[in-house]
Computed example of a mutant assay.
Amino acid sequence: MHGTGAVLVVGLDPVRIPGWDPEPVVKAIARGQARFEDHGIEADLCLVAPDDNPEKAIIEALARKDYACVVIGGGIRKHEPLLELFEKVINLVRQHAPGAAIAFNSTPDDTADAALRWLR
């Protein structure tokens, strides 16, 4: 791995999305983060709410350290109404972490696998 090999995971904060039970996603995110620990990879979470200035939170997270990889979660990527946010996230990563690989997970559980494709 290059540098610190740190990973930033950008996703929707399940607790801040109204109208559904966030608990299964909260648990899946925790399992996903634990898998990073199993691989000895430092992984930070940046969970955002679409209506609460997510760009600012993402820029601040990207500035914290020199990430080797940024994983963008399926909640942002797959939900059609969030297409513009997805584009913003991609462009923020390009601008604020130009050296970081960009990866996509399928579920919160396989986030470490997505990052490992680029960290190997």
Rank of each mutant, 00 (worst) to 15 (best):
E80C: 05
V9Q: 09
F36Y: 13
E23M: 14
W20S: 10
E37H: 12
V10E: 03
P108R: 08
N53K: 11
K56M: 12
W20A: 13
D38I: 05
F104T: 07
I90H: 14
D110G: 08
D110C: 07
D110R: 07
A112C: 14
E84A: 15
P54I: 00
P18N: 10
R16L: 15
V70S: 05
R16T: 11
P24F: 01
N91S: 11
G75Q: 06
R120L: 09
V48T: 05
I29P: 03
T107L: 05
E37S: 12
K27Q: 14
V89H: 00
R77D: 08
V48N: 03
C46V: 01
R16N: 11
D44S: 10
L85T: 00
V9T: 09
L116M: 15
H39A: 15
A115K: 00
I59P: 03
G3D: 08
P98H: 02
L45K: 04
C69W: 00
D109T: 13
L62W: 00
R31A: 12
A103M: 00
A30S: 09
P24M: 01
A49H: 11
G73P: 04
V93D: 08
C46T: 00
I90S: 10
E37I: 11
G3I: 06
L119N: 04
T107E: 04
V48W: 02
R64E: 14
F104N: 12
Y67D: 03
E37A: 15
A30E: 14
